[in-house]
């Protein structure tokens, strides 16, 4: 009798604890989701056009490049690293893609070359970081310079413009005129990233390396392989983003993509990815990307000065990090 009572209480307690634990673990994501919903509600009241299908499609298309980059960045930050070379790789991969088309190669070949460029730069990042034990911050900062240098070298600073209509269609076209291809691409990339993180060994290893690299090593994980693949993945994402960007602006330019890495980092951090690694979800990053995108779009619709947009973005990042440190402190 006594025993059964006990069990029930324990069961109840367990349920409550599960709930509170789940809220605690995903606290940041809930906060971001809350802010996101709040913004959508406020914006749609103040500016009803905000919820217009066309505007929603617009926002989705606008965030697609950052979404793709932020996926790669999330992987990198989950291992406790950082990739500052993203923007520069986007520029140079775009130039390779655009240049290939100008040289008369077919569009698929050009796209593959562009993406491959990103993969190669990313792989170099990974191999050097692992091989020479360089801090990722330093290596990717160096790569930021080198990749952009290559871009300028290839173009002499001049843009490559006017591509075939079929290529422009990648960003312009879509199903039913509203589900644009970039939206499909970013959705696909997000789903693949999520599957990789949650359902593959590599994904688990990424979390383990970011959470405790020594424990991962003694548990028999090839931490060098895991880490270098993560930077390669970020390079792959840069390559895909490059194709989207070149198609969107109908130009491949060496000065393109400046500070894209910062937007990607911001999205990942706002989405609850811990800067020290080990914690974070793709879903959170998706929320982060949309939050930044909606801040930009909403303030533009309201005709608010771009400086306020910068302040708003900075404020949200700060808020996200404050929540991060506060929840971590509680656990300790």
């Amino acid at each position: 009798m006594n025993n059964r009572e006990n069990k029930e209480i324990v069961g109840n307690e367990n349920y409550m604890r599960k709930l509170s634990d789940s809220i605690k673990n995903n606290f940041k994501q809930y906060v971001v989701l809350f802010i996101l919903i709040l913004m959508v509600v406020v914006l749609s009241i103040v500016k009803p056009i905000f919820l217009n299908t066309e505007n929603v499609a617009n926002v989705m298309r606008q965030v697609s490049i950052n979404m793709v980059l932020a996926m790669g960045m999330t992987f990198v930050i989950l291992t406790g690293g950082i990739d500052l070379s993203v923007g520069a790789i986007v520029a140079t991969a775009g130039i390779i893609c655009g240049g290939a088309m100008k040289m008369g190669m077919t569009i698929p070949t050009a796209i593959i070359l562009g993406i491959l460029t990103g993969v190669i730069f990313g792989a170099i990042n990974g191999i050097v970081i692992v091989g020479f034990k360089l801090p990722p911050f330093i290596m990717t900062m160096a790569m930021m310079q080198m990749a952009r240098g290559v871009g300028y070298l290839l173009t002499n600073g001049n843009p490559i413009t006017t591509f075939p209509d079929a290529f422009i269609e990648i960003s312009k076209g879509g199903i039913g005129g509203i589900i644009y291809y970039p939206i499909l691409i970013m959705t696909g990339v997000a789903i693949i990233s999520s599957v990789l993180l949650n359902l593959t060994k590599w994904g688990r290893y990424i979390y383990a390396v970011g959470g405790n690299v020594e424990a991962a090593r003694v548990s028999g994980i090839n931490i060098n392989l895991v880490t270098s693949l993560v930077y390669t993945y970020s390079g792959l994402m840069s390559g895909i983003a490059a194709v989207l960007l070149v198609s969107r602006v109908n130009a491949a330019q060496p000065q393109a993509g400046v500070s894209y890495e910062l937007d990607a980092i911001a999205a990942a951090i706002i989405g609850g990815t811990s800067f020290s690694g080990g914690i974070g979800k793709i879903f959170g990053t998706v929320l982060g990307v949309f939050l930044v995108g909606i801040i930009n779009n909403g303030l533009n619709l309201l005709g608010i000065n771009i400086y306020w947009q910068m302040i708003a973005k900075g404020f949200v990042i700060m808020l996200a990090v404050i929540i991060d440190t506060m929840t971590n402190k509680k656990e300790q």
Binding site: G211, N212, E214, A215, S219
Partner: peptide, 21 residues
């Protein structure tokens, strides 16, 4: 703390860590 646990991950992920392969 240093060599055993990935303390920010779940119990299951910790137990499985050396066993995925």
């Amino acid at each position: 703390k240093k060599f055993g646990l990935v303390s920010c991950r779940s119990l299951m992920e910790n137990i499985s860590l050396a066993n995925y392969s």
